[in-house]
Design a protein around this nucleic acid. Structure first.
Length: 987
DNA sequence: GTCACGTCAAGTCGA
DNA sequence: TTGACGTGAC
């Protein structure tokens, strides 16, 4: 505070609307903004503002995010802005993690045992399955699970009447629910939803726990569900100061009961809300935005908003048709290489992302990348903690921590093998249940001779159980308790001991002959993660909640418990970014996991019906939003593609996704020519220096195809498939199985090598770098570097007036050119009072026609968008259109702002507002050149099984030594473990 | 009855 | 890639 002027330093990186959001004095601020508009940046800046200008203690601020990734990123940014020390006092995390902390501290008040564990998805599923079977409920376990989840996630949105109705309709589900909860309670477990439900219960009954909280901020608000909304309100119950950021168009978690209508509830519950729209998109080229808007605007019920491109037109997005998924993969790789090559070093592999609807679609892309020797990493997909060997160890630790966790005991009772079969385990479980004791104590008593189990346990089994399971676990438990009391023993020691006493290495060698080294490396990775945890969270104050005066906290000093909770809530192994991966890797990710990130080049393959929209999806609109999210990740180049035939072969034809079908004509049919304008345009968007033509051509190898013409534009020709595709298809889909034995004999691990890509020594494989994969992302703001520079000039002019802007009151705090979120609704009500009451609440994804004026357009075309327009201009047709939707709710207690001054209103129907060629379109990029690093995508990721094994000690499986390659290996020719060693099978 | 082994099919998204 | 299922061997 003493050095320099803190407020200007924060505000400098903001545009006008962002600054208004950051500095607003309203108790509640709702920031609504499209992709690439700097939402997170704005939110973090507001936190800094609240601390530095509002004088709030960081410890009195709660920031809730939706994903671990977002939480981590936020933490990093705030730490940078506020300094590590005060930054870390902020209560920041996912809803679940914050709820867990409160429950650990104060849960005793609602009768919760402080040593509760967290039941993860697998636990819940297994439990429900058992219940359904045991009680013969005739319900689909998966259905029961989602039913239970939905019920818990609803929060106070469900009225008692609704609840009763459901109860009558579904007695079986109700029973299942009851049983499930009882079982969890007996095992002292909470599932993910329970964390939220119980925390709501806690804060509702004991508001003093949050009496210190001055401000609550919510990221990705559109993804909150009912119970999270309740929780948010309760967090803020003392001061009622809330800031939310969100984008209804990016709501892609409906299947987790996210409710877009929460936006509406907020405005109803907090009538003083100051709404801010961020309209400038700093990320993507104009043509990418245009076509993304085309897609999203098919949703007529959508909440319309403006998205103003800051950048120039750019290369036309591509919609490519390929013959098969295999061809699609190969095309993607060819196109990636073409782009990297013809951009002369300006684009690297790390600038490219392939975004998939589901992780299982990655096979063909992975295979093609592997063949070409292009290294990649995978975000989403399978989790580190979900690996078999890791799960076993974690289950052991859970038993150590919570011996009454029957499910965990049951899973480890025969691992390593002790001759106890499934039937025995089931019988033991049933017996324990009937005797109303835990499985653990049943075993314990039996082996101590205190109570003979009715289940037959053979002497051999008993002995093994006694020495290997019971004794090991109980000694570890003692040590874990000592650990909490300050003995020098650490978590790492604990896991090491466990691994040693189980003889886990030998177990892996015996059980997984083929890949035990990978698995052992994973175990070591777990140990090292535990070490990281000790370092980061070992001090108990790291996750601590602030002391609240007069409110006693329980001590949460159980390291093991916190480690396990961390594992359950993170669901994803992450390392910090000190050892950041510097190598150039293509990113493959699910669309869900890509949210919030950006890349210069984005591929969205498999854009066909059944994939997106997914065949099992319930909500087509959500699928469309998903595609929209994927497309808006792209900065400079966007490629969609679609195979003509599904993976089953030529018999099943595939249809282009209806989301893009109407706009086929707007896409290019093949990749653009990377001529001078395209290269320079991309350079501008990315804020990088365009390479000279010489630099480009010097690097291009002879015969390199400069155009995207290696694949037919229209590959539809079922009778005469072209050779390339057919080969690939045949080899992968049909022949591989039979060839397997052949390869085993003549090729060893590298079997089929000649059909695969020739070995290339000089690429970084994902294998070698896997340790860094688990770490989180690059620092810095996601918004393009150009963003800051683009606004610098404007801010310089405006800083003088900025401080005078905010001390207005009520809704009039809006800028004159910014409309209320409910603007059109209130208007609608005026004109249409006679509407019958009805589905107002049910249909809240209302449309808004939003003033399109912004600083930018105002500058570009002052005459057209003059803020001095005397009258609101609303297209009557639009109002008409919305009328059929029934009466909207007015915000209660809000006087109609009549003295707001002139408010400019006009509807925007085109995909993006017309903008004249921007004279200042260049202003940002040049300055941004100075810091090209900052525009790199931020990402956090983890390894997949495929690339997991970290040969820490340099262990590598020699080619040909192992057993014959699995079928999977043949399908995926890229197997660095084997390919990297171009030796023959016999050395 | 129980265990080990092979085969077959199916598989969103994530805290 | 896991899981459910059917089959021989203790």
């Amino acid at each position: 505070m003493s050095t320099g002027n803190p407020d200007t330093s924060i505000l400098q990186s903001l545009n006008k609307a962002q600054r208004r959001a950051v500095t607003s004095n309203a108790p509640t601020v709702a920031i609504l903004a499209g992709p690439g508009s700097g939402k997170t940046h704005t939110l973090t800046s507001r936190v800094v503002w609240l601390v530095q200008q509002g004088g709030y203690r960081p410890a009195d601020i709660i920031i809730a995010t939706f994903t671990v990734k977002a939480a981590r990123e936020m933490k990093e940014r705030i730490g940078k802005a506020l300094g590590e020390e005060s930054g870390k006092n902020i209560v920041l995390g996912t809803f679940h993690s914050i709820a867990r902390r409160y429950l650990a501290k104060y849960g005793g008040r609602i009768g919760l045992d402080s040593k509760f564990g967290i039941a993860d998805d697998g636990d819940s599923r297994a439990l429900i399955q058992r219940i359904c079977k045991r009680l013969d409920l005739h319900v689909e376990p998966s259905h029961a699970k989602s039913w239970i989840g939905k019920r818990k996630a609803k929060g106070s949105t469900s009225t008692p009447a609704q609840g009763r109705k459901q109860r009558k309709e579904n007695p079986a589900l109700e029973t299942c629910f009851q049983e499930y909860q009882d079982h969890l309670a007996r095992s002292n477990l909470l599932d993910y939803d329970d964390l939220l439900v119980r925390c709501v219960e806690l804060l509702r009954n004991h508001p003093s726990c949050v009496s210190n909280v001055q401000a609550v901020l919510i990221d990705e608000y559109q993804d909150t569900n009912g119970i999270q909304y309740d929780l948010m309100k309760l967090f803020a119950q003392t001061r009622q100061r809330l800031t939310i950021v969100g984008d209804p168009d990016q709501s892609i978690y409906g299947w987790r009961s996210a409710e877009i209508r929460n936006l509406y509830r907020l405005l109803r519950d907090y009538p003083e809300t100051d709404e801010v729209s961020l309209e400038e998109n700093y990320r993507s080229s104009q043509s990418i935005l245009d076509i993304s808007l085309d897609v999203i605007q098919q949703d007529t019920k959508r909440y319309k908003k403006v998205l103003l491109p800051v950048h120039t037109k750019g290369a036309k997005p591509v919609l490519r048709k390929l013959k098969s998924s295999a061809a699609e993969g190969e095309w993607i790789v060819a196109e990636i290489r073409r782009a990297v090559m013809l951009f002369g070093g300006m684009l690297r592999y790390e600038d490219v992302a392939v975004l998939l609807r589901s992780a299982s679609l990655s096979r063909h892309v992975e295979s093609a990348l592997g063949k070409a020797g292009v290294a990649y990493r995978m975000i989403g997909g399978h989790k580190f903690y979900d690996r078999k060997e890791i799960k076993i160890l974690l289950d052991y630790l859970r038993v150590v921590y919570q011996p009454d966790n029957n499910d965990a005991v049951a899973r480890v009772i025969n691992v390593p093998r002790r001759g106890i079969g499934e039937a025995t385990i089931k019988s033991l479980l049933d017996e324990a249940e009937q005797a109303k004791m835990s499985l653990w104590s049943l075993l314990w008593r039996h082996c101590r001779g205190q109570r003979k189990a009715t289940t037959n346990i053979r002497a051999k089994m008993e002995q093994k159980l006694n020495t290997e399971l019971l004794r090991v676990v109980s000694t570890l438990r003692q040590e874990s308790e000592q650990m909490n009391e300050g003995s020098p023993l650490t978590l790492v020691d604990l896991i090491d001991k466990l691994v040693g006493q189980l003889n886990f290495k030998r177990y892996l060698e015996e059980e997984y002959v083929e890949d035990h080294e990978q698995r052992w490396a994973n175990v070591q990775e777990l140990v090292s993660l535990a070490g990281d945890f000790m370092r980061d969270f070992g001090k108990a104050d790291e996750e601590a909640l602030p002391e609240v005066e007069g409110v006693a906290q329980a001590k949460e000093d159980d390291l093991l418990g916190r480690f396990l909770a961390n594992v359950a809530l993170a669901s994803d192994a992450q390392k910090d970014d000190k050892e950041r991966d510097k190598s150039s890797l293509v990113t493959i990710s699910t669309i869900h996991a890509a949210k919030g990130l950006e890349w210069p080049v984005v591929f969205v393959p498999s854009v066909f019906t059944g994939s997106i929209p997914h065949s099992r999806a319930e909500d087509a609109d959500e699928e469309r939003r998903l595609l929209y999210v994927a497309m808006t990740r792209a900065q400079a180049l966007l490629y969609l593609s679609c195979p003509l035939y599904g993976s089953q072969g030529l018999s099943n034809k595939v249809e282009l996704s209806p989301f893009v079908a109407p706009f086929v004509g707007k896409f290019a049919q093949k990749g653009p020519s990377f001529d001078r304008p395209v290269v320079e345009g991309a350079a501008k968007i990315l804020g990088r220096a365009a390479p000279t033509e010489k630099a480009i051509f010097d690097k291009i190898p002879p015969m390199f195809p400069p155009e995207d013409d290696r694949f037919p534009i229209d590959p539809f020709d079922p009778k005469n498939p072209d050779g390339l595709d057919d080969d690939a298809d045949g080899q992968y889909a049909r022949v591989s199985k039979r060839q397997r034995t052949v390869y085993a004999n003549n090729g060893g691990g590298g079997g089929g090598g000649e059909e695969e890509r020739p070995w290339k020594p000089d690429y970084a494989t994902t294998m070698e770098k896997s340790s860094e994969f688990t770490m989180s992302a690059l620092p810095g703001f996601v918004s393009a570097g150009a963003h800051r520079a683009a606004t610098t000039a404007a801010s310089a002019q405006e800083t003088t007036t900025a401080t005078k802007q905010h001390p207005r009151t009520g809704t009039s705090r809006r800028r004159p050119d910014q409309r209320s979120l409910l603007g059109f609704v209130t208007m609608e009500q005026k004109t249409q009072r006679a509407q019958p009451p009805g589905k107002a609440l049910a249909d809240l994804s209302f449309t808004r026609c939003q003033a399109a004026a912004s600083r930018h357009t105002a500058r570009c075309a002052p005459a057209a968008t003059s803020i001095d327009l005397p009258e609101p201009v609303v297209d009557p047709g639009l109002a008409q259109h919305r009328l059929s939707r029934g009466p909207a709710l007015a915000r209660p207690n809000t006087p109609k702002p009549t003295d707001d001054g002139p408010r400019k209103r006009y509807a925007v129907f085109s995909s993006s507002p017309q903008r004249p060629a921007s004279p200042d379109g260049t202003d940002g990029t040049e300055a941004a050149l100075a810091a090209p690093e900052q525009s790199r995508p931020a990402a956090s990721f983890h390894t997949t099984t495929f690339m997991s094994a970290l040969p820490r000690a340099g262990v590598r499986r020699p080619v040909g030594m192992g057993p014959p390659p699995s079928m999977d290996r043949l399908r995926k020719p890229f197997k660095p473990l084997t390919i990297n060693r171009p030796r023959g099978p016999r050395g």
